[in-house]
Amino acid sequence: MTSARRSASPNRLRYAAQPGHVESYFIRANDPARPRAVWLKVTVFAPLEGEAQVESWFIFFDESRPSPVAGRETARFRAEAFTPAGGRDRASACRLTLTLGSHGSARGSVRAATGDAVVDLTWIPGPDAISAPLSLLRGRLLQGGPFPRSKLLTPFPALSLSGHIDVGNERVVLDGWPGMQGHNWGREHAFEYAWGQCLFPATEREPDTMLEGFTARVQIGGRTTPRVSCLVVQRGDRTFRFDRLFDLWRQAATLEPQRWTLRMRGTAGEARLEMDASGRPMACLGYRNPDGTTRYCENSKLARVRLQVQPRRGAAFACESAHGGALEFLRAKKDPRFPDIL
């Protein structure tokens, strides 16, 4: 990979060997036929004091199991584990390696309660119309400036994943499972958020559709902002952006223990979103901040999703998914519903 291409790559490592940094690369894939999903992540964690570390994460969600199968490993950070290979970005932590790109792979293993979870996956791009890299944060100032302190990018919003994962005695075969790859980084985790993403496959009369959005509060100067929200819907070759973060008069969000709703109005029209993981498998992950505090991420990849859009131009449309929604809540306090924190 040439240095020019590397500097432009959405997956290039932002960690510059300075204390006070968190960065992660994650992949998720959902079984289109049954409520099952897999989520993998590689994290770089550089505390304000102490040496930098890497973490590998694995979660397999299966509604037929009593709880998700989850694992996490930690090791020292090594820069060479993030150098490109074969012209593609690479993120490697412990025994898990993500080779990132439109044609990528995830290989390795992560220790879980059921024993080593073994991963051997490859992916190709999803439908063209919804596969273009996505930044929810609009404009260079938000994308690269000091605010917000945590950034998010979706280099590959739509992928098709195949291969297998071995969980305990079960081999789960993935054959064209829809999924996505994300990349987050910053000086700390946000104070609080709900984040969601979902893919809706094309039908005879409707094009492929993708949504991604968040509702978040961040801290500025020791104070916590009001909730601000953002939503992007890509439907065929049309993009509907509701991304004026501080246009608080045109957005309304509710965050319940396992349900997130959003109403957004803007120049694109009006959108209403409901993502609900009630009764669905959910794992709680402890996300360390460089200052030593911890945030708690309640993570489900099997949320029910209902999206309705009244565009400013064009026909109204709606999309539903029975169990394809990736839904995460980041909270400042631990929820007693989750006795085990990964």
């Binding site: 009006e270 209403r272 309705q308 859009v309 009244q310 064009g314 026909a315 109204a316 449309f317 709606a318």
Partner: peptide
């Protein structure tokens, strides 16, 4: 709740009445 929209072409057929044809969406 669900969204609804229509786009109709109206053609006058007699005084006070138009025939309309077009597209309606009510997912």
């Amino acid at each position: 709740d669900f969204p609804i929209s229509f786009e109709l072409a109206a053609l006058r057929v007699e005084r006070g009445r138009f025939a309309v044809r077009g597209l309606i969406a009510a997912p």
